[in-house]
């Protein structure tokens, strides 16, 4: 399967996961989980800006920002007791970093199903990541329409 249009970081993340045994994929997801960036200072006291991703079993909140250069910035908060959800959020935060509005909106909605995690964490759980991506894209659309 080739998807030439997939942004570089997202393609790399996918290759990294697919190159591992199923059990090791969980370890990589854990590494992503540990790497979820802290919120920048300016957003720390603004829980109101963040949208809860209801489809995830654990509380996870996201917020997207589009800067003057039409670059998308995704921020996410998830508790340490929910490492899987943190890992999903972290993959998207890193995978979408530096992308333009158009590039983010062009990311295939089924990207979460293509990175080899469905088997490792179950199809039901991967829905949470699909929802994260879907909501991030919807926020971007709303921001550029505003």
């Amino acid at each position: 399967m080739t998807t030439p249009d997939l942004p570089e970081q997202l393609a790399e993340i996918r290759e990294d996961f697919l190159g591992l045994e199923v059990r090791e994929r969980l370890q990589l997801l854990l590494e992503f989980s540990n790497e979820l960036p802290e919120l920048p200072e300016r957003y720390r006291d603004h829980p109101d800006l963040f949208e809860r991703v209801e489809e995830c079993q654990s509380p996870v909140f996201i917020f997207t920002e589009v800067d003057d250069a039409r670059i998308v910035h995704l921020f996410a908060i998830a508790p340490k007791e929910a490492p899987t959800t943190r890992g999903f959020a972290s993959i998207l935060v890193q995978g979408l970093a530096g992308l333009t509005v158009e590039e983010v909106l062009a990311v295939p909605d089924d990207y979460p199903q293509t990175i080899g995690l469905t088997e490792a964490v179950s199809p039901l759980r991967i829905r949470g990541m699909t929802a994260l991506l879907g909501r991030a894209k919807r926020q971007v659309r709303e921001k550029i329409a505003a």
Partner: peptide, 9 residues
Amino acid sequence: DEDVLLYET
């Protein structure tokens, strides 16, 4: 667990 990675933490 509910969270499939919690054991690993």
